[in-house]
Design a protein around this nucleic acid. Structure first.
Lengths: 160, 160
DNA sequence: TGAACTCGGATAGAAAATATCCGAGACAAG
DNA sequence: CTTGTCTCGGATATTTTCTATCCGAGTTCA
């Protein structure tokens, strides 16, 4: 059970975008985070398809958040990058083999699948409760309130 | 974030083993569950290395649980197959790029990593609360109390 | 009108998971 | 005590997924 490394880049990118009302190009985000430019752009496309960010083309284009950062949950970002299907997929083992149960008596999911789904729900709810704004505030607090200011300054300084 | 399919086989195998005090060969478990024999055996080796099952060699050998099923959590089985490292691994993006934070000021984990770790903890605790005995009881209840009896009968009937 | 800069999907390479086979060791029977 | 058969265990191919990259389509500003 391994999560795509792009999830980390996407979360950091969303936190950065929350500090700018103007479009930020993918290459700029990649430079700030020290990540591969082309691959970073690919993940931002996934965020765009999920409706989390909006892309603007042209010379002054780039990416912007579609909603206030307080209304974007970490769960949305993770699912946009890593997919929204659950980690555990029941292959219906109970229906196979010499003691296979007929499909007609399998209206409810398997008990094992139910336990795994409950765990996934607990995981999802924990991430749904955390917003991008919460993450930005926590990062700011870790840096004595200078981190987000530095990001804003860097974004305006490098904007031609 | 995808979980190995072997997790499902391992959980079903542990539930089956909880119904037998005598060793059950890997081939027998694979037949009962309708899974590839060789690959099923490989996953049982992982359970053996984790100390969840004990292997007995020889003609009447096979696998047995090392502890009562009520003292084996689903989390242990999942971690034995899928690994115990967390799904999210922080690459320390905050230390990279033009605004990189020096490592000396990064004693605490990144705020994003903390949020992901909290979600993983919620997931782990949900699975830690569920034992193999609980799963067996739930499966039994779904089948009107005949499923585990059928398993016990099949195990003794096919035991030469 | 033109030029430069942006995103977007299609394309190679690397890593991991899946599935399998054969040898080492152990118990039971003769 | 020897033999034979059955067991597990690690080492080996194949497929799938993830990682990383490049070039074309479209848009905005000068």
């Amino acid at each position: 059970m391994k999560m795509s490394s792009g999830v980390e880049w996407a979360l950091h990118s969303c936190v950065t975008l929350s500090q700018s009302h103007e479009p930020v190009p993918a290459a700029r985000l990649a430079e700030l985070h020290g990540t591969p430019p082309a691959y970073t752009a690919k993940h931002l496309q996934a965020l765009s398809r999920a409706g989390i960010v909006r892309s603007t083309m042209g010379q002054v284009g780039g990416y912007t958040l579609t909603r206030p950062a307080s209304e974007i949950s970490a769960l949305e970002v993770v699912q946009a990058i890593d997919g929204d299907e659950p980690a555990y997929r029941c292959a219906e083992i109970r229906q196979r083999g010499p003691l296979g149960i007929p499909a007609e008596r399998c209206s409810r999911p398997c008990a094992i699948a139910r336990a795994m789904a409950a765990a996934q729900d607990a995981w999802s709810h924990a991430l749904a409760r955390t917003s991008i704004a919460d993450l930005a505030a926590d990062i700011d607090a870790d840096s004595d309130g200078t981190a987000m200011l530095d990001v804003r300054n860097w974004l305006t300084a490098t904007r031609n």
